[in-house]
Write a protein that binds this DNA or RNA. Structure first.
Lengths: 217, 217
DNA sequence: GTCTATACAGAGATAGAC
DNA sequence: GTCTATCTCTGTATAGAC
């Protein structure tokens, strides 16, 4: 393994385990078992290292979920996949890396770029799955998959951040989300006429809200 | 205004605007216009100051929303309130303070305590509103309001964090959430029999999932 | 309670030998 | 590419005068 890769691994692990304040050039180098000056030789700055590390983590994570995400056909399956991602998070810490970089982004443009990259990457992936999953549901045509993918991705960040502080609470939260998913899925049982009526009502509400936004507040 | 309060204000503002790395004892004292040593005199440590500042911010924010939260009667109104909170966030930065403390919690027990306090406080408040709002909906009895309140609170954290990096995307996300809220509200139009059928289906799905969890994975 | 001064550790970053 | 050595800055924290 090259020094470059050792540093990237150490940065990713440090970011997930200790947070931003635990990934100084010295700390990362120590974790990687290499000299501190190499951080600057290979990446120019600590921010540069973190940027590269997070991008790589996201790319790897997205690639490793791509196949399974492509197989997802229902909302329930998507929620199950989310559960698995949450379970895997305890080992990989992918999402926590993103959360850390996002908080650091406020004063560091490099980290801000990395944060945007990570969110865009995940959101794009979730979006195509959502688009497919939502098609046969009443939400199709009513909710923008792109926006919903953003909400899902951001929400996940919040959940993992919360999990790092209070794991039990997050388990309760996930159970609640499962229940909502079950309800939405159960809407399939409705006769088409009823679905049409509900959709019509919802659509009018959304249109009214859009109009209000259009007028400005 | 006492020095203590000046420091608390400065810490809260710094946390929201610059993030954790921007709230050193020196930076906060400069913002407050007082001497750096006073941070340690009044709060013992920087963590102590941040802890106190976040607790105060949360207490104030929760108090200022309590009346309006008590008036919320429908899911739509709750979503509107969330919108207002998001708009106010640009000035107050309450939620961002929580996000920052949560990321810092990984290596600082004092901050971890503050993070738990903040989440518990908000979640408890959201929970009572949710309990009331969900009662007349099909979700009543199906989803645990406590867990859902956690999910909502955590999700909001993620959204505000995302907003700090990419505001436009978050607006899309909020629109998508509004659409979902509209659909759930529109379920009121269904005849009671149809609601019963949907609930029955959903309930069975939830029961199966709970059983699987009970068996362990 | 507030200020000055200071100790000291750790940070980012660079120079230069190898 | 890697290491040692070092510069400089910023951070936390304390002592002691006022």
């Amino acid at each position: 393994m090259t020094t470059r890769d050792k540093l990237l691994d150490a940065a990713a692990a440090g970011l997930a385990e200790d947070g931003l304040s635990g990934v100084s050039a010295r700390a990362v180098a120590a974790r990687a078992g290499v000299n501190q000056a190499l951080v600057f030789y290979h990446f120019g700055s600590v921010s540069g290292l973190l940027d590269a590390a997070v991008r790589r983590s996201v790319d790897l994570a997205v690639a490793s979920y791509r196949d399974r995400l492509a197989d997802v056909a229902t909302l329930g399956e998507l929620l199950t996949l989310g559960r698995d991602l949450h379970a895997a998070e305890k080992r990989s810490g992918n999402v926590l890396q993103m959360a850390q970089v996002m908080t650091g982004a406020m004063r560091d443009d490099t980290l801000a770029e990395a944060a945007r990259y990570a969110m865009d990457r995940w959101s794009a992936e979730v979006e195509v799955a959502l688009r497919r999953v939502l098609r046969p549901t009443p939400l199709h045509g009513l909710v923008d998959p792109r926006g919903l993918a953003r909400a899902v991705s951001a929400g996940f960040i919040g959940l993992e951040l919360h999990d790092a502080v209070d794991p039990d609470s997050v388990e309760e939260a996930l159970v609640a989300l499962d229940a909502i998913g079950a309800l939405v899925s159960a809407l399939d049982a409705l006769p088409p006429l009823a679905v049409r009526a509900v959709r019509g009502r919802a659509r009018r509400t959304v249109a009214r809200a859009a109009e209000r936004r259009g007028l400005g507040s």
